[in-house]
Amino acid sequence: MHRELIQLDINGERRELAVPPQKVLLDVLREDLGLTGSKRGCDDSSCGACAVLADGVPILACVAIASCYQETRIITVEGLAVAGEPTPIQTAYGEAGGSQCGFCTPGFMIAIHALLQHNPNPSDEEIRETLSSNLCRCTGYMQIYESVRLAMRRMEARSAQPAAVR
């Protein structure tokens, strides 16, 4: 099969690899880079489990042709933690029951991370709206919202007390 050399900026690292030019980013992440956090739950861009950040904007890696994203900074779920420290939403998720089977979780992590970056204090309705293209079959979403609100409260407390717990 015909392959081309492409360069991708993934989780802050420049990666060079030879892939078929039409290969979608999700498959490149999972098969060529061993970044299996992003999941494939559907085949028609309708479940959100594959979401990654492209220059900070959450997109669906299953319909992004990898070779077309060579000038974009890609962050996957594996790249969210800073220096190995989980983000507030990652911690809150465990405590408030955001994950059950966990298969949709990477997509939600990406969507929620982007939401909180953009707006640290979203309303319940904004949270619900923003997460409306991430499907979860386990939780019924209530504990996902609870996780987001818990993360928001913690982020707020931390920013009010910059020297406090890290």
Partner: peptide
């Protein structure tokens, strides 16, 4: 007690392995 699920860190970090993640 509301103990977080033991596999939660693996799930939120994307490092947990489901069958298709294993090669």
């Amino acid at each position: 007690r509301p103990l977080p699920m033991t596999d939660s860190p693996a799930k939120v970090s994307g490092l947990g392995r489901y069958a298709d993640d294993i090669s």
